[in-house]
Design a protein around this nucleic acid. Structure first.
Lengths: 105, 105
DNA sequence: TTGCAATTGTAAATTATTTACAATTATTGA
DNA sequence: TCAATAATTGTAAATAATTTACAATTGCAA
């Protein structure tokens, strides 16, 4: 197997992450955050979902999920929810910057 | 922002992919393969899901999804379903090898 | 102990998925 | 061409998962 081929398969994962959209149950499984808590955070405006029409199931992309994981990290450390959300904003910007660089490559 | 920090955030994505488990609706959105077709492929034994109990909703991990995408690629090229499945086996091994190397790092 | 932040509980309605049976549409070799 | 097989698609009824809304509970700091 050539190294070039392996890299091709891998770089594709950034397209994959881009398409990745999952429901609240999956997010809960992935992050360990209860669905009830995810909805609460959304009610509070801390996070957001992609869902357009109300009544339809919530959909989250990679960025949303990443954000939840970061917030969870910080609240576990002892920060309040609002403080965590504030801090996460800055980290999110970093991540986006990193990802966009890698996508271009 | 330090480069080290960015790398840390990124390497975390391999853990993320590991935890990633999604339902059939999401897989359909991500891959563009209709849910009906995904179930058909599963019936035929071409792909598999993680679901243990029957009647419960199907769950797919990253490997499953990747496999579907590869099969779709090949059938679109004109290969039969069985031939595609055969070819994909080998490519899957490559991908796993690549991923496991990156996870260790 | 009061007030607020944060989380959790749950019922009824709705949305999404499952299974099972069947029909339809290519494709291929005789 | 035609028959056989591959591949996909349709759908109804049952079940699983999610939504919203109203409320209760828990934890913590002033």
């Amino acid at each position: 197997m050539g190294k070039a081929k392996a890299n091709k398969d891998l770089s594709f994962d950034f397209d994959f992450l881009d398409k990745l959209v999952v429901g609240i149950g999956e997010v809960s499984q992935i992050t360990g955050i209860p669905t009830r808590q995810i909805r609460y955070w959304e009610d509070k405006g801390i996070i957001s979902s992609l869902t357009e029409e109300e009544g339809k199931n919530r959909r989250y992309n990679y960025e949303n999920i990443k954000k939840m994981l970061l917030i969870k990290e910080l609240t576990d450390e002892g920060y309040t929810l609002d403080a965590s959300a504030e801090k996460v904003k800055k980290r999110m910007e970093m991540i986006e910057e990193t990802l966009s660089k890698l996508q271009k490559k």
